[in-house]
């Protein structure tokens, strides 16, 4: 069913079940966010995609990523209050990831060039992780390896692997590093091995018939199983077919 709503006064159409963030972005309205990715379900952790929604005469601030659109709502994606709250959120995030180019650039857009909060100072050092959870969600929802999880709660919360050890179900596919908004996972290939630095996972790379190393054996096995491919499918690399 097609729904009608307005965003910043402009009438737009949306399908039932779509998220407000997706609808707004599709129609060219910019809304910042750091914990959202099209490949996984909305989570609502970073709080940057805050917008104002008026429904039945009542206004409220809400995150747009996990807000399912409704017909007749009026949405405002930028206002003085929204900018103020986003700036404060970015100041909190900047203190956790002061080296991240993405975070720095976004913060600058909101006039935040330095954080008034001391560097991290969380219970355990987070090394640039802003706990958006994207890595774990991609690993569970897309890859199906379930190698990562949040542990503890509150300000002791951390992202990592069970027992903070090399995760046995990790296939070193690198999806976590790819989606990480602050690039804090770290990932490289050297000497026939692929390493995912943050999780201390390293796996030897499989070679094709022509001797090209392109992915860890474990990953290929996992993918073959998921996609029900022939056992020798990866004897050829994508470029060799």
């Amino acid at each position: 069913m097609t729904l009608n709503l307005t965003i910043n006064g402009v009438r737009v159409e949306a399908e039932e079940g779509e998220s407000l963030l997706d609808v707004a972005r599709r129609n060219g309205f910019e809304i910042p966010s750091l914990c959202h990715h099209e490949a996984v379900a909305a989570y609502g952790a970073c709080r940057l995609c805050l917008v104002e929604v008026t429904k039945g005469g009542r206004k409220k601030l809400t995150t747009s990523c996990n807000y399912e659109v409704l017909g007749g709502i009026e949405v405002v994606t930028e206002s003085a209050a929204i900018r103020r709250h986003r700036a404060m959120v970015l100041e909190l995030i900047l203190a956790e990831a002061p080296e991240s180019a993405t975070v720095k650039a976004l913060a600058a857009e909101y006039g935040v060039t330095r954080s008034r909060f001391a560097a991290s100072g969380a219970g355990e050092d987070r090394d640039g992780c802003i706990l958006c959870g994207l890595c774990a969600r991609v690993c569970a929802e897309v890859v199906g390896a379930n190698a990562l999880t949040f542990r503890k709660r509150g300000d002791n919360r951390q992202m990592g692997t069970p027992f903070v050890e090399e995760p046995q179900t990790c296939i070193a596919c690198g999806a976590c590093a790819w989606v990480c908004p602050t690039s804090c996972v770290g990932f490289d290939e050297q000497n026939g091995e692929r390493k995912v630095h943050r999780w201390k996972r390293s796996l030897p790379l499989a070679k094709t018939e022509k001797g090209h190393a392109f992915a860890p054996q474990f990953q290929l096995f996992h993918f073959r199983k998921l996609a029900k491919l022939e056992a020798d499918f990866y004897k050829k690399a994508p470029g060799e077919r």
């Binding site: 609502g44 709080r47 959120v89 956790e96 959870g133 709660r153 509150g154 300000d155 919360r157």
Partner: peptide, 13 residues
């Protein structure tokens, strides 16, 4: 700060 679930930036941080 100890009892927050830790999901939202605003609550946790």
């Amino acid at each position: 700060k100890f009892e927050s679930c830790g999901k939202c930036t605003t609550c946790r941080e």
